[in-house]
Design a protein around this nucleic acid. Structure first.
Length: 428
RNA sequence: GGAGGAAUGGCCGAGUGGUUGAAGGCGGCGGUCUUGAAAACCGUUAUGCUCGGAAGGGCAUCGGGGGUUCGAAUCCCUCUUCCUCCGCCA
């Protein structure tokens, strides 16, 4: 959420910057709500001051044994009026909060301006797409023959877009998780957590998945619980309503969790294989930083995620989101796109964002600057490091052989008991 | 699931209707002392909103919400969380 004080004083600038991402800020409504609010506050505070001074006076008069009946009745009416004003004000502030909570974050000034993903800008590339002396297959053709993926049975168990990995496929998934977590915890300084896989609406509001994106979530019936769409939600909310000590910053967490997304509105997109699923595993990186540190922390976060792909020797590129393609809460974000031979394209495998104080304000996450300054909002950042299911696809497709087997990348072999190649197998 | 108890500032902890935004302690910050440090001593130290150019005012906040009252940290109702005991399950 944006700072309402900033909005009040820089309404035109905010309107302008938000227009770069295709958001039309209703300046008139905001001005009207804001001035109504001010009027009510002034009137209410005037009456409360009257009530406070009169109460003191009544206490004094009682001591002096003076009759206060009239004064009391007078104040009773004032009290009634205060109650009415407070109720109206409460309703109005809710309205303002609702209004503000669906305004997206301001894009950073160094983000390329553009409304569509065509205007995203590639910033760097690693590796070359592998040259095959045969026609490489997509994973949905390759994997059933290997017996490591069974989508028909997954659909039977649940429905479409759920994964069922088997044998070496299942072990590859687990190896990837352990490999990624080891890199981030042992080498990149992240602490590992295992958070709840369901979160309440307050938490989802904090990361701004609610109220605007409820249709993307699975909700547990008759509860206030949602299946998490990413570990970002529970991990960011670890510090909701907390005040962190300065010397603890930056705090860096990593967590592997299943992610559940309803993918409403994506029908007809990526329908084959396991690229877009209702459930997938993801290793997430989350940082809480001082405001002045967040731009550089975003750069290092992206590098931390890239390192996983480098070690797996998977070709990728890094793309910066244009203003209009960045997520609702992001001020700036990079995607990492891995090369998928089966699609002959670079596809998203990680998204890394700086939210600045946008989530921190919603979730009320603050820190106390050393040297005794005022409590300030932290900046939050996060990124995938990486989406495990998509990494799984990338390995299978990039490391496939002419005979349909898949070579295991060197760095993963210790995690697979020395396995070097995935051969056809039947475990289901 | 049943029965009790508790929730106060960054932390600990007083406080049962009228200068209590809140004693005291710890911690933090500034200072005195010291070659330096520690100790000791002195001072200072919440957040949000609002008025103001500023100085400085005002309002709200003692887990959340509601109620009683001229007036609530304090009384009542309710919700949440935590603790103890019993039961159940792993």
């Amino acid at each position: 959420m944006l700072d309402l004080a900033y909005l009040r004083e820089n309404l035109e600038e905010a309107r302008q910057r938000l227009s770069h991402r295709g958001f039309v800020l209703d300046v008139e409504t905001f001005r009207r709500l804001d001035s109504e609010r001010k009027n009510l506050i002034h009137e209410g505070e005037r009456l409360k001051q009257l009530r406070n001074t009169s109460s003191e006076e009544i206490a004094r008069l009682i001591k002096e044994k003076v009759d206060v009946t009239e004064k009391r009745n007078e104040m009773k009416a004032v009290g009634q009026r205060i109650k009415e004003i407070d109720e109206t004000l409460g309703t109005l502030e809710e309205e303002i909060y609702r209004f503000a909570s669906i305004i997206p974050n301001l894009p950073d000034t160094d983000v390329p301006i553009g409304l569509t993903e065509d205007q995203n800008v590639e910033v760097r590339r690693f590796g070359q797409p592998p040259a095959f002396d045969f026609e490489p297959k997509a994973h949905w053709d390759l994997c059933p023959a290997l017996g490591i993926l069974d989508l028909e049975r997954a659909t039977k168990i649940t429905g479409s877009r759920f994964p069922l990995l088997a044998g070496a496929g299942a072990r590859l998934e687990r190896a990837l998780i352990n490999f990624m977590l080891d890199v981030h915890t042992k080498e990149h300084g992240y602490s590992e957590v295992v958070p709840p896989f369901m979160a309440n609406s307050r938490s989802l509001f904090g990361t701004s998945n609610l109220p605007k994106f409820e249709e993307d979530l699975f909700k547990v019936k008759d509860t206030d619980y949602y299946l998490i769409p990413t570990a970002e939600v529970p991990v960011t909310n670890i510090y909701r309503d907390d005040i962190l000590e300065d010397d603890r910053l930056p705090v860096k967490f990593t967590a592997c969790t299943p992610c559940f997304r309803s993918e409403a509105g994506s029908y007809g997109k990526d329908v084959r294989g396991v690229f877009r699923q209702h459930q997938f595993n993801k290793v997430e990186l989350v940082k809480f930083t001082r405001p002045e540190d967040s731009p550089l922390e975003l750069e290092s976060l992206v590098k931390d995620a890239e390192e996983v792909l480098k070690r797996l020797r998977l070709p990728y590129r890094v793309v910066i989101h244009a203003t209009g393609d960045a997520g609702f809460a992001a001020a700036k974000s990079y995607d990492i796109e891995v090369w998928l031979p089966g699609q002959n394209a670079y596809r998203e495998i990680s998204s890394c964002s700086n939210f600045r104080d946008f989530q921190a304000r919603r979730a009320n996450i603050r820190y106390r600057p050393s040297g005794g300054g005022k409590v300030r909002l932290v900046h939050t950042l996060n990124g995938s490091g990486l989406a495990v299911g998509r990494t799984w696809i990338a390995i299978v497709e990039n490391y496939q052989q002419k005979d349909g087997t898949v070579v295991i990348p060197d760095v993963l072999r210790p995690y697979l008991n020395g396995m070097t190649v995935i051969k056809p197998q039947k475990v289901i």
